[in-house]
Amino acid sequence: MTSNAEYFARYEAIAAISRRMLMAARRALWNDLVHLQEEYRKLVDGLRDAETSVRLDDTERVRKYALIRQILADDAAIRDLANPRMVNLSALFAGRPTRVLKELYGAR
């Protein structure tokens, strides 16, 4: 069973990683962002197990929702920063998928 303190420590860790992901996106450190996303996923997976065993009072629920709002705001900002990069990558592949695949994988 997870204590409420452990539960919130997990949420705080997710919020911290989310903030680091946003900083990486702002600096266009895309490889760093990918590595942070892996950590993020592991933390979220661990939180899923804890969700069923924790009972929150009203104050704790407010705290949880504040953390979730922060995480979602960071996520939205990351998406805004990454979207132009995704558009550029899509343009790179548009109209030339065969050539790009050949270059990437050495296909003949």
Rank of each mutant, 00 (worst) to 15 (best):
residue 54 V to I: 13
residue 42 K to M: 02
residue 6 E to M: 01
residue 83 N to T: 15
residue 17 I to L: 06
residue 63 R to F: 01
residue 85 R to N: 07
residue 81 L to H: 07
residue 54 V to G: 04
residue 52 T to V: 09
residue 10 R to A: 10
residue 96 R to W: 03
residue 74 D to E: 08
residue 25 A to P: 05
residue 13 A to N: 10
residue 76 A to G: 08
residue 99 R to C: 02
residue 35 H to Q: 12
residue 50 A to F: 02
residue 47 L to Q: 03
residue 98 T to G: 11
residue 45 D to R: 11
residue 10 R to E: 12
residue 14 I to N: 00
residue 31 N to E: 14
residue 94 A to C: 04
residue 59 T to R: 12
residue 103 E to P: 00
residue 52 T to D: 12
residue 38 E to C: 01
residue 92 L to H: 10
residue 44 V to T: 07
residue 72 L to Q: 11
residue 90 S to H: 14
residue 29 L to T: 11
residue 22 L to M: 01
residue 76 A to M: 02
residue 38 E to Y: 06
residue 73 A to D: 14
residue 107 A to N: 12
residue 14 I to M: 01
residue 70 Q to M: 08
residue 49 D to G: 11
residue 67 L to S: 02
residue 91 A to E: 11
residue 32 D to V: 06
residue 98 T to N: 08
residue 57 D to P: 01
residue 32 D to I: 04
residue 50 A to T: 07
residue 73 A to Y: 04
residue 29 L to K: 06
residue 66 A to G: 09
residue 94 A to M: 08
residue 47 L to R: 11
residue 7 Y to G: 03
residue 2 T to S: 05
residue 41 R to W: 04
residue 21 M to I: 00
residue 21 M to K: 06
residue 68 I to V: 13
residue 58 D to P: 01
residue 104 L to A: 12
residue 99 R to V: 14
residue 39 E to Y: 01
residue 69 R to M: 02
residue 52 T to S: 13
residue 37 Q to A: 05
residue 63 R to N: 02
residue 16 A to R: 06
residue 90 S to N: 13
residue 47 L to I: 04
residue 67 L to R: 05
residue 99 R to I: 13
residue 73 A to I: 03
residue 10 R to Q: 15
residue 56 L to C: 07
residue 3 S to K: 00
residue 48 R to Y: 12
residue 79 R to E: 13
residue 104 L to G: 11
residue 10 R to W: 04
residue 47 L to P: 01
residue 51 E to P: 05
residue 102 K to F: 02
residue 104 L to R: 10
residue 86 M to Y: 13
residue 98 T to E: 14
residue 40 Y to F: 13
residue 91 A to M: 05
residue 100 V to D: 04
residue 44 V to H: 06
residue 59 T to V: 11
residue 94 A to H: 07
residue 91 A to G: 09
residue 66 A to R: 05
residue 83 N to Q: 15
residue 43 L to A: 15
residue 36 L to S: 05
residue 38 E to R: 08
residue 21 M to W: 03
residue 33 L to M: 08
residue 4 N to L: 09
residue 39 E to N: 03
residue 58 D to Q: 13
residue 11 Y to C: 02
residue 69 R to L: 02
residue 13 A to F: 04
residue 49 D to L: 07
residue 34 V to S: 08
residue 93 F to P: 03
residue 25 A to L: 04
residue 14 I to G: 00
residue 26 R to A: 11
residue 23 M to T: 15
residue 55 R to S: 14
residue 92 L to K: 09
residue 89 L to S: 08
residue 37 Q to P: 00
residue 50 A to Y: 06
residue 29 L to C: 10
residue 70 Q to I: 06
residue 49 D to F: 04
residue 102 K to G: 04
residue 87 V to W: 05
residue 4 N to H: 12
residue 5 A to C: 00
residue 103 E to Q: 07
residue 24 A to S: 09
residue 15 A to M: 01
residue 2 T to K: 00
residue 96 R to A: 10
